[in-house]
Design a protein around this nucleic acid. Structure first.
Lengths: 364, 364
DNA sequence: AATGGGAGAAGAGACGATTCTGCAAGCCGC
DNA sequence: GCGGCTTGCAGAATCGTCTCTTCTCCCATT
């Protein structure tokens, strides 16, 4: 069929706009994209006609021609078939939210893609044109990452990549400083023997945090007291917390590396009749607001996933647009210790029931 | 330049595969896509060569040709410039997680897109080729939805659409049944006057829930006792909770429509010296696990966002692939009342502070 | 022997935009 | 008045894939 202008259903093409405006395709493209040398009158006219016809350029055609899709992949390593891990849900959710915001602000959209499972996710990956990808906690020799880098697609990781994974850039917290600072805080609150609840997996977060703990212990002249458990198992945490408090060399303060450790440890402390913070100081790493409302409120270390997400996306887009300078970049982000009752040695005796104040009545 | 085989940087095209395998482009395409009439030997050979060259078909070209991108948009209405609303974060996160899983399982990927703000998000929308879109709680005459439907893109909404928004299908909870059941539960626990903490906005969730409450009150012969506040304001909830408990006709049970209402009401109750559940029964609608750990644990109504997300995506993909039958579909999903201490009248006497005579007068 | 038909493979457009190149005017200085 | 410059626009190639159509064998049937 050489008669190509069959007035297809609904959607107007650039040809239709050109015909309706009495100009060439080139002129329409230039007018709409602010390129070329055109008088404002022509530009306005073309825009007007395009609006009237409800013209939307085909994203696929544009992507094919320009090689840029405006799409950024977002991947998390998965332990089951679910794309988010149970224990880190709050972290991921906040990180993804911030990343999405940052991407949209610069004209990109985020595509949620499965991590590198051994299943069959390759179709989905090669079915979408990506300008770049964010990977959260890539594993050692992640095949997807390797493949993407080979194709020249920029990859920025949240979390220092293990091994020699050739990512374009990465962002991570200063886990060393975070753990050291937190242990100092506990020591200042009177802790003599600080325990650690850690994980058995080999990701960088677990590894760096544990190493920082061991280093601190050595410097402080304290014997390490820790229990490790498979962090992706939602039940194992409570058991490990119990084990830690059942030890003969029971610690008088504990730091838990994972989000649920706070409640796990609190429950374990209750079982052993330990009062928090009087008999046991508690800190855990968490993004959840739960710990502001527990009894007592628990001090948490926040990794500030929002800031991480924003930074990761900024670096990625810089790399995509060539703004970044081309050299591999790594960015270390600070953490936030939110100090609550559980890590403060008996400040004042808080009365259990709140004092009734009739003055609280604001509304008349 | 007719010399088109410039051995571009890295990426092999279908032409390169054809040349390397000594066959035509057609044969390569057919071999890799399982189409055409080819002997297995040829198919294998082509696949082998393609693998060796690390060939990945161009998603953009395929999309342009076939008209299918394998991409599904996900939109939430925004109140600020953030893509998620504060009060409904947990709901959105879980819904998006489930939707993403369901989409990936059927070979589609989710693209996170901004809701219809008056800002300038049109670029992003028209820069991505979508096979369909999920919208969460679309507003009355959402321009993006209208535009998409006009272009023939299927749109499925989470939440019954207001007005006559022409969505392809929608999924929602049975809010009427949920609220009625919950109020019955409170009444059975001994509540005589049940109050409501609701919102001022006009979305269907707020509207349907409030109407269900009013209807129940009428049937039960109880005067409605409620306070409404702008739900998107994170501070207003606490104030409204306070107002509700300060009323002369103070309710002896309250249902809060929004996630933070539980803690807001709990705090307000403490300020007025009301014990939960002895003096005040509490239920709020929330997806957060916080309420299992509060003192006391609070009964929550879960909207089961995971089920909603899965269903929405299934319906959308059915519509995209023409599996659904073509007629508009609406699906009503059940909710889950998770009963905890806060809505159970004095099971056993917990030894707290002695019961104080409730000053029912309140207002001086 | 001629024909029909099926298997195997190749040719040649689309798909819908971007963009490089080129062409016709108009205007300037000399 | 003429060459060279800018301005305003059009032609046509190209991006990489899918797919409709065609073409050639080759064997079995009539």
């Amino acid at each position: 069929m050489s008669r190509a202008h069959g007035r297809r259903l609904g959607r107007a093409g650039i040809r239709d706009v050109a015909a309706a405006a009495g100009v060439s395709i080139t002129t329409v493209s230039d007018a709409l994209n602010g390129k070329g040398r055109l008088p404002d009158a022509t530009r306005r006219h073309v825009r007007e006609v395009a609006d009237r016809l409800g013209y939307r350029p085909s994203a696929a055609a544009r992507t094919l021609r320009t090689g840029k899709s405006g799409l950024i992949g977002l991947t998390v390593t998965t332990y089951g078939e679910e794309p988010f891990t149970f224990t880190e849900f709050a972290y991921f959710a906040e990180m993804a939210r911030a990343a999405s915001s940052a991407a949209l602000a610069r004209g990109y959209a985020l595509v949620i893609l499965p991590g590198s499972t051994r299943q069959s996710p390759y179709d989905v990956w090669s079915n979408v044109a990506l300008d770049g990808t964010v990977v959260i906690d890539p594993s050692d020799r992640d095949p997807v990452v390797t493949e993407l880098v080979r194709q020249g697609v920029p990859v920025v990781s949240d979390g220092r990549p293990c091994g020699d994974l050739p990512v374009t850039a990465w962002v991570d917290n200063d886990h060393e400083a975070a753990v050291t600072g937190l242990l100092d805080h506990l020591a200042a609150a009177g802790a003599r023997r600080i325990g650690l609840l850690t994980g058995t997996s080999t990701d960088t977060y677990t590894r760096l945090s544990t190493e920082a703990y061991l280093g601190w212990c050595e410097r402080a002249g304290q014997d390490p007291v820790y229990e490790a458990y498979p962090a992706h198992d939602p039940c194992a945490g409570a058991v490990a917390a119990d084990r830690l408090l059942a030890r003969p060399d029971r610690p008088d303060a504990v730091y838990g590396l994972f989000d649920p450790n706070g409640t796990d440890l609190l429950a374990a402390a209750r079982r052993y009749g330990l009062r928090v913070p009087d008999d046991l100081l508690l800190v855990c790493c968490s993004e959840s607001a739960v710990y502001a409302g527990t009894e007592p409120p628990i001090t948490t270390l926040s990794l500030k996933p929002g800031r991480i997400g924003t930074t990761v996306v900024q670096l990625l887009i810089d790399a995509i647009e060539g703004t970044g300078g081309g050299r591999p970049v790594q960015r270390i982000m600070p953490t936030d210790l939110i100090v609550r009752t559980s890590s403060q040695r008996r400040r004042r005796r808080t009365t259990v029931s709140a004092p009734r104040s009739p003055e609280q009545r604001g509304q008349a």
